[in-house]
Nucleic acid binder design. Structure first.
Lengths: 150, 150
DNA sequence: GGTGATTACAGAATTATATTCTTAAATGGA
DNA sequence: TCCATTTAAGAATATAATTCTGTAATCACC
């Protein structure tokens, strides 16, 4: 299983991908065992992969919104269809099926309000079975991390 | 500025960090110009960094919730204090100041419902100026990406 | 407490990749 | 067209990843 050292490695790698030597120094081991631990975490699928994070503003995505979507009825077929359609829209970064007052929470990133409007009108609201869409625009992302507490 | 090739590079790196040779093959360039383009994108801050993504279940975070937080009043002081406190809680992965029916949208990841309950009661709700907290639990993450459309 | 098996560690050796350097080709105004 | 600037490619070098080998620590079992 996973010990204290593995957790230290994961904490470091969640912050920033670093070379083995740097990680080794942080966890107090030599390069080889550190390397082997990282490989093992990757093989076990605990580390799913490594990705580049981009600066949202610099690539011109000026609008981020969270959309609360309510479906007409909670039929399995309707939900499955919705979930499949969602995958094909690159504007949708995240889609979570949630409990509570609505069914799905979507994270949307687009260039401007015009594109957002188009997306809602021409892509999202035309999907079958949608009852309601309520959008909240992100004015400021106070904290934005991919790291889990370990 | 950024051309078609740079975009291809960013698309690839947002999916998975790859070595220069692989990226070079994908964009149809040799290693050197590809390398220099990646470095330039990093220096410009378009690429903010590279992080490891972990398997949530495998590290034992069984509960993810989105919390809608409403403050008592929209005073700058109150908002600033709230935003600072938020930073110190590792259970909070994201915190967005949003428009609409509530003020902040928080993404919370914890081990179990007990820990969630403790977090809400002992950490979040005790913060000064909080009027209301409404939580939606994630039952299934249909799509979960860090990649922006390019 | 001893003992064999297993696991974890470290340093050297090797391989692969990143980075730099040099030169040539392409591009874009004046 | 010509000069300046940018972009590309291949070779050379530096750095990091990966493998290999031997040693120490750990642990179940006696």
């Amino acid at each position: 299983m996973m010990d204290r050292t593995d957790r230290k490695i994961l904490i470091a790698l969640q912050q920033e991908r670093q070379n083995t030597k740097e990680i080794a120094a942080k966890v107090g081991l030599s390069v080889t065992p550190t390397y082997e631990r990282i490989k093992k975490l990757e093989q076990q699928g605990i580390i799913k992969g490594y990705v580049a994070l981009l600066d949202r503003e610099k690539i011109g995505k000026r609008v981020v919104a969270y959309c609360q979507v309510t479906l007409l009825k909670h039929q399995k077929g309707l939900i499955n269809t919705f979930e499949q359609e969602i995958q094909t829209f690159p504007e949708i970064m995240e889609c979570h099926h949630v409990s509570g007052g609505f069914d799905f929470l979507l994270k949307i990133a687009v260039s401007d309000i015009k594109e957002f409007h188009q997306f809602i009108n021409e892509k999202l609201s035309v999907l079958e079975g949608i009852s309601n869409i309520h959008s909240s625009f992100v004015m400021n992302s106070v904290k934005e991390s991919t790291a889990y507490k370990l």
